[in-house]
Nucleic acid binder design. Structure first.
Lengths: 248, 248
DNA sequence: CGAGCAGTTGATATCGTTCAACTGGTGTGG
DNA sequence: CCACACCAGTTGAACGATATCAACTGCTCG
């Protein structure tokens, strides 16, 4: 598990995934103070309208970005996985425009925003890596907007399953299966459907022989057909993005 | 009109909106080469999967970001107005994940991506301003995802009208009205509805006395009730964002 | 053992789509 | 200057996907 490593190591390697770092960069990252913190499931890390002073780097557990309508309906904008920052945009936007909520119980390393700002500006390679992270996140939101706006229910749910299969590091191991860290209600809030309809949709994906389920464990039975049914093209995750050689 | 000014002036003031610039910053922006270019309505500035080498700064006209499903359905992700860059994320993501398409006839100043990269990294204040622009854009996409996923048709269309009233500089002048630079089909593609349903929805907004229309000109009749009906809260546009005093 | 919550299922209601026809501007060529 | 074509907008009727409401099942935890 990711938590076996020291938080600073996890942070360094998460950033080094995006941009090539030199020793000074690594030292600067390690020098940044942080505080380990725990959040229970369903608690808020960040609230819409708030002016956060800290930014959480997720060590273990899952969180969501979400917004609420005035009527109280929830739209999940995206899922946050271990190794991701909860709210990098708050580096330069003082007021938050959405909520970040723990989906499961969560372990995070909390950094002060001024420290992160200073790191980003004093070590341009690191700043660039953080910038890229916000860009990839934005790309995921765009794809999910297409998903919700222009695909039918079955395709939407299948697409979400494919996204998780792509993003979860443990998926693909052990028999092409993985554990969805959320309820059907939460799937619905992510893809703009009702929990009831998500349920029927999952059943149909099973009936069509694309997936198999036992509780929240999803096994991909026919990967190729599932990807096609989901209209899934992983380019939006920007995995092929070359590691930048920072050139000033 | 914005085109009365020299392109470099427009660019400088657009960036200075976000971050305080010193004389060296301004000089660096002005020193960046660009090429004036025209696009006809409906032509593509940028294609999904492409590896653009230029980035367009819009001087006049309107464009959209959009993505297509495999079936060919279009989702409009957001509208680009004069004074905005077409594709700043391409500064650090080599492959584009969506299309940018001219909505009307368009005049742009086209910059080479390496020049923009160099500007962003050599003048950190400028880089910060560009970063902030990408963050604000991402915020708009999130709000529109909530709009599509969790609001009914009438609210969605009303929300789009409110967003345009907020963003168009000429709106609010001349009798609280403005010209929507798009067809009802395009409104539908932006809010996840059919052109037919958009039409009925607009008629109902008229029937309820919230707006009046003559062709594409929209006059806001009852601003307060329209905002309420649209569930519109302008915070997501980050207008209150203080102009950053860049501090290294 | 009981409470509570996620999941499941059925019946009905509704919002939005689809298809099709028609209107009315606008621009173009004869 | 008229005729025509074209396209955005408008309207009606029927259909369908998804929501809503309600009941029931079966974990899991205290």
């Amino acid at each position: 598990m990711i938590t076996e490593h020291a938080p600073a190591d996890v942070l360094v390697s998460s950033i080094a995934n995006r941009v090539a770092l030199d020793d000074t960069d690594r030292a600067a990252i390690r020098a940044m103070p942080f505080r380990l913190r725990h959040y229970d499931a369903r608690t808020y890390l960040l609230r819409q309208g708030g002016r956060p002073e800290h930014c959480a780097f997720i060590l273990s557990g899952f969180a969501v970005r979400q917004k609420l309508t005035f009527m109280g309906a929830r739209q999940i904008l995206g899922f946050l996985l271990p190794g991701e920052f909860s709210d990098l945009q708050q580096l330069f936007l003082s007021r938050s425009d959405h909520n970040v909520q723990a989906l499961t119980s969560l372990e995070v390393a909390e950094c002060a925003i001024p420290d992160l700002q200073h790191l980003a500006m004093s070590r341009p390679a690191v700043g660039q890596a953080l910038w890229i992270s916000t860009l990839v996140e934005a790309s995921m939101v765009r794809e999910n907007m297409l998903n919700i706006g222009r695909r039918d229910g079955l395709t939407r749910v299948a697409h979400l399953l494919c996204e998780f299969e792509s993003r979860l590091p443990e998926a693909g191991l052990e028999d092409h299966g993985y554990d969805l860290p959320m309820t059907q209600e939460e799937i619905g809030d992510a893809v703009g459907l009702t929990a009831v309809h998500v349920n029927r949709t999952l059943k149909q994906l099973e009936a069509e022989g694309l997936i198999a389920r036992t509780r929240r464990f999803v096994r991909v039975v026919d990967r190729k057909r599932l990807l096609a049914r989901a209209d899934f093209d992983p380019d939006y995750l920007h995995r092929d993005q070359p590691v930048f050689e920072f050139a000033g």
